[in-house]
Design a protein around this nucleic acid. Sequence first.
DNA 1: CGGTGTCTTGACGGTACTCAAAATCTGTGG
DNA 2: CCACAGATTTTGAGTACCGTCAAGACACCG
Lengths: 245, 245
Amino acid sequence: MLNHSLIVRTAPQEVPAACANCGGRTAGICAALDTAGLEEISHETRRTAVRPHDMLYHEGDSAQSVVMLMRGVAKLTRQLPNGRQQVVGFRFAGDILGFTTRRSFASDAEMLTEGQVCRISRLDFEGMLARFPATQRRLIDLCSQELAEAQEQLVTVGRRQAEQRVAAFLIALAEAARRRGQSYDVLDMPMTRAEIGDLLGLALETVSRAFTQLKKRGFVKELGRGRVELPDIPALAAMAEGDIE
Amino acid sequence: MLNHSLIVRTAPQEVPAACANCGGRTAGICAALDTAGLEEISHETRRTAVRPHDMLYHEGDSAQSVVMLMRGVAKLTRQLPNGRQQVVGFRFAGDILGFTTRRSFASDAEMLTEGQVCRISRLDFEGMLARFPATQRRLIDLCSQELAEAQEQLVTVGRRQAEQRVAAFLIALAEAARRRGQSYDVLDMPMTRAEIGDLLGLALETVSRAFTQLKKRGFVKELGRGRVELPDIPALAAMAEGDIE
DNA sequence: CGGTGTCTTGACGGTACTCAAAATCTGTGG
DNA sequence: CCACAGATTTTGAGTACCGTCAAGACACCG
């Protein structure tokens, strides 16, 4: 339980440069590379299509490569001895998964949706870090962001009750969509109640009841198949903070 | 709730170099500096004695300086709107506090014990990062460690019940002592039941009851005033994992 | 020795978990 | 297009764990 991983989140719209071999989309760390660096990294990446339930890597596996999630949604989980799982977080297009300074991955990474990933070997990634110091600075920024989210999640799980936790989850989901430049009042939510529960430390039934309540209050509408509308985000945020009700 | 901080933990015994102006103790980032770097940073640090309840910085304050904790124990907390607090973590001698890529600190930092700190202005710290790329690599490693602990804490708060959480807390405390090269079967525990509860998402009474149980089972002995003995760490770890009882 | 802060223990109630069953949705094949 | 199987979601009932309130014990300090 003492191994660890560094899973960083990128902010594409803050990143002007494009990653050569990654379909023209801007992907995280690439922003810190100059032309020579992009040229170099483009020889070292492989692009793959992935489908729901595909495992990107397993907890404990030798961390041979880093994965850039180009399209789709993935979940990071840690297995517990009693057979249950803790969802450590969800990751979206533009995020980097599986970078760690340790030998092995600290969590499972599983796709929730279809998508595409770029893989780069850890050796090449490390080499890139050594040759382009600017990428290191960028990794620190990304890690900083990641850490902030983990701490925020700690507050959610530690000090809020069920309905507040679900509200906080929805706010975080909207914030992630906003950062990717997508609409954030109507957004994709491809995760199941069970997976949300495993993130929030709640039973899936409790998550379901919380959604029912939030829908009754008019804070959430479900538009069918993993798509939700948040008609009043400020009110939802206030509820997550415990300011109302 | 969307600001963030990077608070990194060092591992002194893995760090051969010494920080010139820091009393000969090895302190985190310094390991990545060559002689010129040490010379330079030694001009930029200030040493201060601190006492219990001293605030090292406040959440939201402009992040003007980075704090190296040379001696003592501090807690990092985030305030919640309803007046309660979440303890994000405890920090020990050798840890670096308050480094962030954002403008302001993401948490309060308060001393629990007497101690000593070195301060370096953020500007100088950033300058050092720019001039000595090796320090960036080291910051990434430290951040990686920090993130792993936050995720571990998520598992603890999300999926364990009260007695398991307290057991996991004690194991983490012992692990932190081990990393600092101290004894880990007998160790200092200067935090109150309330502070432990605010870390674990439990009421202080629940923490107290859990300690009573653990003492009855013989997993913990209290040696008076903030000092505990862990006679059977493997059993304690098994309990934290939910393997026994 | 009193005052303050911390810790312990007890009683009670509420939130959320568990177990269970029904309802709804989704995709597949006839 | 419809029927069906499987997965997911919803809802209900009962219970357990933990939070809250309260009182007393204990330790520390002036």
